[in-house]
Nucleic acid binder design. Structure first.
Lengths: 217, 217
DNA sequence: AATTATATTTAGGATTCCTAATTAATAGGA
DNA sequence: TCCTATTAATTAGGAATCCTAAATATAATT
């Protein structure tokens, strides 16, 4: 029985994720027109905003968007041409650039934040408990992807040096974030936290073990 | 407390889904090179195979891939040029085309089936129970997207005229598929079933109510 | 000082993706 | 039957995506 549906479930999940991915992409194309931005440009802009006020380098854009540096360079050039990003030399490395939002870029970035709202509405079709379970599943998958090297960065709580899993008794918020110094529940786990700082591999491993083992309950 | 993290969870989920979507897309580009296919072409080819032996129309490709007919036409033309698809007039409608796999197309389609394996491996990082919950969440979200009109087709069990939710006592397989005439569990719910036939809106609504209400347990 | 590595850009080319206009065939109504 | 939508697909035109490969400049290493 355990084997009867084996593989099937996983394939259905992959099919579903692919479908949502397509919806996100096609939506990004259609909505982008409103602001005169293409999906890649919008993502690049969003990334610079997420990392603000620290300037961003081109290679960070390429890594985060999972495209080559050539593609990232194209998108960033377009954004500079449109006056949404400024591109200076990085102060600490004359080879690198320092990307920052212009005033117009900040305004545009506010507009694009609303894009995935159509998906957010559908996430709300899940009740609180289901959302937490779903997020936990996502976190596990994305961490696994990162460990395998199939995904580059991923600024997640579970790989952050500030994350301390299962240190509180409250089952709704058993973890702790040392950065904001506050309890954290499964439903609060972040996947792209601006404050995240990668923990050492050893720390990561230890925290992950504690997170997964204790989480069965 | 319930409100303290409200909205946050949904945003984290969207961020995670977007990250996986990007990984799927970038992987498709890199792997596609091996067979000389781009992501859109590969998806189109996969769609034709999934629907085989019935021929596929261009508008089906466009709907399923969520691109315009112009884009779909480009991709299909490329596949025909590469000898992977045949394009005839549809017998029942002289305006439409009938797309079929060639022998070479079948071979190529087998190759692309392996692509999302990197993601499938990471889905396996979830235990059986988590996978089922995750799939259930996906099904709910995708159905909601479909109801809202944010996603076009979606050949899901939960909107199929053969689907009868909660008719068995076995908690591991409470549903029933009238097409294969077999019990079905949450972990078996399909998102892209070749045999799916859309139920009437009334039937869909009734089945969905029964599916969701009884599912809390 | 010479070498190697890193950060970015440019060149070239196939594809994606859109809108808008065209062609052809079907469907419905007068 | 004829006329008018509607529908299926293609084409044209143009900006953007995305790749590889090669070039440029700076940093780090030896």
């Amino acid at each position: 029985m355990t084997e009867g549906s084996e593989g099937g479930t996983g394939r259905h999940v992959v099919a579903g994720l692919a479908k949502i991915g397509m919806a996100l992409r096609s939506r990004a194309w259609r909505e982008g027109e409103r602001l005169g931005l293409t999906p890649t440009q919008a993502q690049a802009l969003g990334l610079v905003r997420a990392r603000a006020p620290r300037p961003v380098r081109l290679s960070q854009v390429a890594d985060d968007l999972q495209v080559t540096q050539a593609t990232a360079s194209d998108a960033v050039s377009a954004l500079v041409r449109k006056g949404l990003l400024s591109k200076d030399r990085a102060p600490d490395d004359a080879r690198a650039v320092a990307l920052r939002l212009t005033a117009a870029g900040e305004a545009a970035a506010d507009g694009i934040a609303e894009w995935p709202d159509f998906l957010l509405r559908s996430v709300d079709a899940l009740d609180e408990c289901e959302q937490a379970a779903f997020l936990r599943g996502l976190v596990k998958m994305i961490r696994d992807l990162q460990v395998r090297g199939d995904i580059p960065v991923a600024r997640m709580c579970v790989t952050c040096r500030f994350f301390r899993p299962h240190v509180h008794d409250d089952p709704r918020a058993p973890h702790h974030c040392g950065f904001v110094d506050a309890p954290l529940g499964d439903r609060d786990l972040r996947i792209d936290c601006p404050e995240q700082e990668q923990a050492s591999p050893g720390q990561q491993e230890a925290a992950w073990d504690r997170f997964v083992r204790n989480g069965a309950a």
